[in-house]
Design a protein around this nucleic acid. Structure first.
Lengths: 239, 239
DNA sequence: TTCCTCTTTTGGACTAGTCCAGCTCCAGAA
DNA sequence: TTCTGGAGCTGGACTAGTCCAAAAGAGGAA
């Protein structure tokens, strides 16, 4: 009953949306090759790719660099008010978490980091870079910056573990006030490389500034989430 | 000192980023026409548009349907924990808010809405559709769904005002618990039309389920924000 | 079985255009 | 002075390809 002219891109989108919605294409499954699809829909690869790009923006499908297009799995709930950490959060939702440590070292702090952590000029910080997976899929790239004064020797521990737990068990430090800042943006080159996606893919950047039980700023995190991997949930209690 | 091959798209992005970053292109100002730019960078319009698309994904520029590309103004902070409303929030940040009412009526409730508001099957709801601006720019499309039992005659009031204020002053109803759900996605056709942007532009969809001081679910909102218009800020107090 | 190499397939990046519809804006009419 | 019609400009949508590099898979050697 639709009267509107079925422009090709939207027509392709609708067709694929329908297939995915009806479960004919299961989450995680691979779509046919772009050339195949463009043939199937009787159009050019450029047009087809435009349609795929829109579905990617919606979060219905995602791509892996030079590997192909896949149907996005359900999003995981991210609740900033609940004091949790990646492994616990993902596990509680019936999914399988995993962590890769990309690098971990003491290095000169950038001006931004000095500012955020309240360090004097020309300080050093501990930087830990990690990539995290849900059910095997790379979904999160994080850079942690720790004030080295509070965490001597932390680089010698197993950093695939939760830092939250490490802080508690080894240093007696617990999170106090936390400040989140979330902005929808695109993956910057480093993050894109780590997640093995095209630079410029849509993403949600979450910056955390963490204080301990005494109100001291202990570290800050720079998280880049694949935009289709999470939804942020906030339950505000009666004011 | 960069060794990587300067692929055209990223080269264009870098050039424009630099111009914008150094303030040569002021927020709100219009970029030259696509054809002009493609000539300037000595490339095709398709390639040029790909680059513009990436900058759009980053939130640096935005487009107005058939009018051109513009430099994005700074983002406004959105804090779900602070009980505020659009006009107050925008005004406090030194920006100028405005609201257009697109439609307001009593209509049959969809199954989803019945479910969320806890209404019996085949109920009616009050639907209010509004578009909101910051400094003149359309940035937010909202659909409000109110339980009609709590708001008799509300359609006769000036609905460009804040509903929060209307609830308080006319019905003695105040917000209690509120549940937010935010998901990065693309604008659906209705929202895109209202904001006068291409359907499928990146967006942040925020769903709110609002309770009053007695814990009753009084209404729910479906907000579509231009993804480059806000950043979400959450300050979590010591747990 | 394991490892390595070569071939094929696939996505990434780009060129060079066409046709169309909505927006702007200016000139001319009322 | 105000309104309006139309030309020109601008983005939107699409066609029809090419070249390249990385990934996947097949096949053979150790």
């Amino acid at each position: 009953m639709r009267e509107e002219a079925p422009r090709t891109v939207t027509a392709i989108c609708r067709a694929l949306e329908e297939q995915i919605g009806h479960g004919l294409l299961a989450p995680g499954s691979k779509l046919p090759a772009e050339r195949k699809l463009s043939e199937l829909f009787d159009t050019t690869r450029i047009t087809l790719r435009e349609a795929l790009g829109q579905l990617e923006a919606q979060g219905l499908i995602y791509r892996e660099e030079r590997r192909g297009w896949f149907v996005s799995p359900p999003r995981v709930a991210y609740n900033p008010l609940v004091r949790s950490h990646f492994h616990a959060m993902v596990g509680e939702q019936g999914r399988v978490p995993a962590t890769d440590v990309l690098s971990a070292r003491l290095q000169p702090a950038s001006a931004d980091i000095c500012d955020v952590l309240g360090l004097p000029a020309l300080s050093r910080v501990i930087q830990i870079r990690r990539a995290r997976r849900i059910d095997g899929r790379l979904v999160l790239y994080v850079e942690h910056y720790l004030n080295p004064a509070y965490f001597p020797g932390i680089l010698d521990f197993d950093l695939t573990r939760s830092l939250t737990e490490l802080y508690a068990s080894e240093y007696g430090i617990h999170y106090g006030r936390v400040r989140f800042d979330m902005v929808p943006t695109a993956l910057q080159p480093e993050a894109a490389a780590a997640l093995r996606v095209a630079a410029g893919s849509p993403a949600l950047r979450i910056t955390r500034i963490n204080r301990d039980q005494h109100g001291r700023i202990i570290d800050c995190d720079l998280e880049f989430w694949r935009h289709d991997a999470i939804h942020v949930q906030v339950e505000v209690p009666e004011g």
